[in-house]
Design a protein around this nucleic acid. Structure first.
Lengths: 207, 207
DNA sequence: CTTCATATTGTCCTTTGGGGCAGTGACACG
DNA sequence: CGTGTCACTGCCCCAAAGGACAATATGAAG
């Protein structure tokens, strides 16, 4: 699994050394001397890659950068790599979704394992999001009215009830329903409900 | 949030002290001198509670007990509380789902916070499981044939196709379909699909 | 052998879903 | 004012789902 590893560490000699090791393993590497440098790079979240992040760095700390990235919706997996690991920081980092928390010096085996896991996880998450994104895109093309009909359809209402609830006629609901199926590119009610469920639109049902 | 805290630690004086502190905070407490003692107690997984677990104890270690419990399907939340935390153990414990990883001596504030979070999480998980359990129970009452029909229905097949795939007639499928709706206690296809999706039966669709 | 659960199937009828064809009305944009 | 989108609707027809009523067949259990 190829990928781009972002190394964020204030220790220049460490950056050089780790870059050499990672390139030997076949990875592309970019290094940053601070969290701010990384943020300024304005990265593509979709590209295969991960972050190798020191905890104690001047300016924004590693965990602070992690929080920023999470808040901004980034899904780049993070591997912490630090010389001084204290338990609360470790716990917090993992709870926040870090792929791993390693201590310097790190064996190449542990490091490369962690990177491989991070890239695999990102890949799985990306393809999962990709499928949902297609549905979200289709959903966005629905008009207000079509969206209302959609919501009632996937909750099990029949056309007659939908017509009543929207103050219109069954024939009109049928027309909208047709548009919904067309725009969502599905061929059965089951598919439509399945999508709605995956998009988290049915968490509290009114069936 | 009341609950039963299971304290597993080989240090008798620690057990006595922590039991006193937790009872003062309003919790019920049971103590165990070893992981094996805890396993022998054969607990009710559904009762509100959590485990306060030492890492290094004679016999089964804390993480080993955690693995056993996970393998046996237990959902009791675990809070590790240990005197010597090393990073890999900490990371592994949290990744495996431990609620927290604390070090002795622990402030009452941190400890009680962790316990409260653990109980809240267990409660949420239990109520979530509870809803699904009802569906699983209904699902279990389906005969083989009804289950086959169920699987095809929620994948969007129409009766004619189901009949063909099962080598029977449309009328027979209707009969089974009726039984499925009856036994699953739903009134619409949408509800049925929604349930199937929540039970993870539609992860790779064939729609 | 009787009883029960399961699976099967037919006929007939009603309700729903789906869609073709055609037309109306509102509203925005240029 | 012409054009386009969106919402709405009637008539008619076909396909699919749902169910009432009735019946056959098979295998396990007692």
């Amino acid at each position: 699994m190829p990928g781009l590893v972002h190394v964020v560490d204030d220790d220049a000699s460490f950056r050089t050394a780790i870059e050499r090791r990672l390139k030997l393993a076949g990875y592309d590497v970019v290094t940053y001397a601070s969290a701010q440098d990384f943020l300024n790079a304005a990265l593509d979240d979709e590209q295969p890659g991960c972050i190798l992040l020191d905890v104690r760095i001047p300016g924004l700390s590693g965990p602070e950068l992690q929080n920023r990235l999470i808040a901004s919706g980034s899904t780049l997996p993070i591997i912490f790599l630090t010389g001084h690991a204290d338990t609360p920081t470790t716990v917090q980092a993992i709870k926040a979704g870090a792929e791993d928390f390693l201590t310097k010096p790190v064996s190449s085996e542990l490091l490369l394992d962690a990177i491989a896991r991070a890239l695999a996880r990102q890949d799985a998450a990306r393809s999962h999001r990709g499928r949902l994104e297609a549905f979200r895109a289709h959903l966005a093309t629905l008009t207000q009215r079509e969206r209302q009909v959609f919501d009632l359809i996937v909750r099990g209402r029949i056309n007659k009830q939908i017509a009543y609830e929207l103050g219109t006629t069954e024939r009109t609901v049928k027309a909208h329903r047709h548009q919904v199926m067309e725009k969502m590119q599905v061929h059965s009610l089951a598919e439509l409900v399945s999508i709605a469920e995956r998009l988290g639109m049915l968490d509290s049902n009114g069936g």
